[in-house]
Amino acid sequence: MKLKLGLALLVLVLLMIGVGPWFGTQDPETIHWDHMAAAPDATFWLGTDVMGRDVYMRTLLGGQVSLLVGLLASLVSVAIGVCYGMVAGFIGGKTDALMMRLVDVLYALPFLFLVILLMVFFGQHLWLLFIAIGCYLWLDMARIVRGQTLALKAQPFVEAAGAMGQSPMTILRRQILPNLKGVVVVYATLTIPQVIMIESFLSFLGLGLQDPMTSWGALVNEGASHMELAPWSLWFPALFLSMTLVGFNLLGDGLRDRWDPTSQQRASDS
């Protein structure tokens, strides 16, 4: 149920974002002096903002940026987190203790603050944005993957592979990695909405992307500050943003119900 609903939402959003701009009749950056804060009509389907720009096109193009940042930053965090967690869990012992201590220390840093500092000081580049977010979010993934790896390593089938004469690298690749896939996919799916949320939060503070580039967070910020004049310039970006986040969260939940080893165990027991 959750899975289907989440997928449906995401497909809808993706279709809109991917195909929608083709049908758009307006340029997203052109300022229409005669149509400032205009309500939705036949020309401006979702109205215009206070500066007279087409909300329809801006929302869809902003969505492309938000999604791109979400996907790339998640990729960064998943890649770092999986490698780090797997190595720590598999080697175990002192190495593991040391590596996890580092994660503990990093957890203790007010990371979001550091990301804000980075954005403030080093300009608002797209790539910097997703590297900064990705470097912040990998910690969760590292912990989850490390815990799973530790649990898997203690499983008799992994020990059997060792007793069979499989080398450690092969065990990691053939016995452990396939069993991690589910967890990684689930938590990666749940990381994407987190990233989009952080990006939109930064954009809301004016620390995200700079004009003319825009994202949902930036649009919501603009919309919110003029909501009495042009409420539609708040509603539509906000609606899209929420739909996307709900979609990803539902998808992740649904996948977790289906794939997470703990819930799977319960299913096979009954």
């Binding site: 008799p156 089938f157 992994v158 059997a160 592979a161 396939p178």
Partner: peptide, 11 residues
């Protein structure tokens, strides 16, 4: 091993 459920790689 003892546990017939955990002795085989589920994947």
């Amino acid at each position: 091993f003892q546990d017939p459920y955990a002795s085989l790689n589920p994947r």
